[in-house]
Simulated assay, not measured.
Amino acid sequence: MLRTSYPVLCSDDVTASARFYREHFGFEPTFESDWYVSLRHPDAGSELAILDPGHESVPDGYGTPARGVLVNLELDDVDAAAERLETAGVHVVQPLRSEPFGQRHVIVRDPGGVLVDVITEIEPSPEFLAAFGREA
């Protein structure tokens, strides 16, 4: 039986990456060392971890920072979050915009190179409405 699931993101600067999620999104550490930090959000219960790709627990040949990973963080007010992130100097990869598939979002980059898609759900356009399941 599956008990939990969460991403572990490799970063060359574990401290900076963990600080990014703490300062900008309210995650709190549940375990912290110089090579691994486990984080949990106190409200959402969401978890993620940051790992030094050079640590001995990483199999040979796989010790590269995360690339091609997009972490979605759904918030109540993406407009306020986008303004706060820009003011804080966070690297914005894609400016705030609304998508016809039902998202208003901004995409930023964490210190380890992971893309973070900050999202608020909006009403999808009619052409996408049919793609959603009945429970969506």
Score class of each variant (00 low, 15 high):
36 Y>N: 02
48 L>N: 08
13 D>A: 11
111 P>D: 03
39 L>W: 08
6 Y>H: 15
14 V>F: 06
98 S>A: 15
70 L>G: 04
97 R>G: 12
43 D>P: 02
22 R>T: 02
119 I>N: 12
122 I>A: 07
7 P>H: 13
36 Y>H: 13
49 A>Q: 07
127 E>W: 05
53 P>Q: 08
84 R>H: 09
68 G>D: 03
101 F>E: 02
64 T>W: 08
132 F>L: 14
78 V>L: 01
84 R>T: 10
84 R>V: 02
118 V>H: 04
98 S>T: 15
74 E>N: 12
10 C>P: 11
30 T>S: 12
127 E>N: 13
70 L>N: 12
107 I>K: 09
84 R>D: 00
94 Q>D: 06
76 D>W: 09
43 D>L: 15
63 G>Y: 04
79 D>A: 15
111 P>W: 03
39 L>H: 08
113 G>C: 07
111 P>R: 03
49 A>R: 08
51 L>E: 06
110 D>N: 09
95 P>S: 14
21 Y>I: 01
73 L>I: 15
101 F>L: 02
67 R>W: 01
128 F>G: 07
19 R>N: 02
88 A>S: 06
26 G>H: 06
68 G>N: 12
118 V>T: 12
69 V>K: 05
16 A>D: 01
111 P>H: 06
102 G>T: 10
34 D>S: 15
102 G>V: 09
82 A>C: 06
52 D>S: 13
116 V>P: 02
109 R>W: 00
69 V>W: 06
72 N>P: 00
32 E>D: 14
65 P>V: 12
86 E>K: 14
24 H>D: 00
117 D>W: 10
60 D>P: 07
51 L>Q: 13
132 F>P: 01
111 P>N: 05
110 D>H: 09
76 D>C: 09
32 E>K: 14
131 A>F: 14
102 G>D: 06
106 V>G: 01
91 H>N: 06
72 N>G: 14
90 V>T: 06
136 A>Y: 10
87 T>Y: 05
98 S>V: 14
77 D>G: 10
33 S>H: 08
135 E>R: 14
39 L>N: 08
53 P>S: 10
40 R>A: 12
49 A>N: 09
35 W>P: 00
106 V>I: 12
101 F>Y: 15
15 T>Q: 09
16 A>E: 04
9 L>M: 09
87 T>D: 14
134 R>W: 02
23 E>C: 03
95 P>Q: 13
82 A>F: 01
122 I>E: 00
129 L>I: 05
14 V>R: 07
10 C>V: 00
105 H>F: 05
45 G>S: 11
23 E>G: 03
17 S>N: 07
62 Y>K: 13
84 R>M: 07
7 P>M: 11
20 F>H: 05
73 L>G: 04
73 L>F: 07
10 C>N: 11
136 A>G: 10
78 V>F: 01
10 C>K: 13
63 G>W: 01
104 R>S: 04
58 V>N: 03
119 I>G: 05
45 G>Q: 11
16 A>V: 02
43 D>R: 15
125 S>Q: 11
67 R>C: 03
67 R>N: 07
105 H>Q: 14
105 H>L: 13
91 H>T: 12
134 R>K: 13
57 S>I: 15
104 R>A: 04
128 F>N: 10
13 D>L: 10
62 Y>V: 06
119 I>M: 10
36 Y>W: 14
129 L>M: 11
96 L>S: 08
97 R>I: 01
62 Y>H: 14
30 T>Q: 12
102 G>I: 07
